[in-house]
């Protein structure tokens, strides 16, 4: 894949941009602003994907576990699925869609409208000013959205199971924590930080080096989404296999 050839460039660019940003007070302030705006941009899409999927999962699994008389397996199953896979995976995908494409398009537009050149000519470092804050901003946004996604995923599963399909409320609450530990939550958040960094780095690099006018901006955004989605899902798979083993580390 052509993307593999760009890995060194992405790493070099992202590292230098983040380093330059960490040295500048203004750029750090801009990082906070970027994190906020990226979060706002992705919040609704994340909730809208994770919520229904959590509820649907609850409904399907409930009928299955009921059939076998093991309804008490349901809550742990749902909690583990949401925390380990659903929340970090789908929130990262939505960040690719919204934030990744947005960052690439923004930086690409700045490039083709010669705004990046203008900064260069003024003697300012565009990496520190425009690229770094977005990369770090994405790394901050990742865990925030993941936390929201975990809450929404579990809550909508809970709502579907208890309020729509009459599972005893106490049972759900008591057994839920059999499926997950606090460590699972931290691992999930750590993964989200890694995903945010990956998405930020790739999209900022692709956007920053856009060529070919306005059409090139669209191309950069598209390439970014495809590359980051595949990268994030693949990384998610590798990390989960490394942490929980090939069989997903039996919940019970």
């Amino acid at each position: 894949m052509a993307f593999l050839a760009e890995v060194p460039r992405v790493i070099a660019f992202a590292l230098s941009a983040m380093a330059a940003t960490l040295r500048s007070r203004e750029a750090l302030a801009d990082t906070a602003e970027q994190a906020l705006s990226l979060t706002r941009r992705c919040l609704v899409p994340v909730a809208l994907v994770v919520g229904p999927v959590g509820a649907m999962l609850a409904m399907q699994s409930l009928s299955l576990t009921r059939m076998f008389g093991v309804e008490r397996l349901l809550a742990p199953l749902l909690a583990a699925t949401v925390v380990r896979e659903l929340a970090p995976g789908f929130s990262a995908v939505m960040i690719c869609f919204q934030a990744g494409a947005g960052i690439a398009a923004e930086l690409g537009t700045m490039r083709v409208q010669e705004e990046i050149d203008a900064l260069d000519v003024m003697g300012l470092d565009p990496r520190a000013m425009v690229a770094g804050p977005r990369i770090l901003g994405a790394a901050i946004t990742g865990p925030i959205l993941n936390a929201v996604a975990m809450l929404i995923g579990i809550f909508s599963a809970y709502f579907a199971a208890v309020h729509l399909f009459d599972m005893p409320q106490g049972m759900f609450e008591q057994t839920m924590w059999d499926g997950i530990t606090i460590t699972d939550l931290w691992i999930s958040e750590l993964k989200a930080i890694v995903f945010g960094l990956l998405i930020g780095s790739v999209s900022a690099t692709f956007g920053f080096f856009t060529t070919g006018g306005p059409a090139g901006v669209g191309r950069a955004a598209n390439r970014t989404v495809v590359a980051t989605v595949i990268l994030v899902l693949f990384t998610n798979y590798l990390l989960n296999t490394a942490v929980y083993g090939a069989t997903g580390g039996g919940v019970l």
Binding site: L57, S61, L64, T65, F68, V70, L73, P76, L77, A80, T81, R84, E85, L86, G89, G179, N236, Y237, N240, T247, G248, G249, G250, V251, L252
Partner: peptide, 15 residues
């Protein structure tokens, strides 16, 4: 598809 399968299989191993 893959992630749902892994998680569901792990949780349903009892049955």
């Amino acid at each position: 598809g893959a992630m749902l399968t892994v998680q569901a299989a792990a949780s349903l191993s009892l049955i």
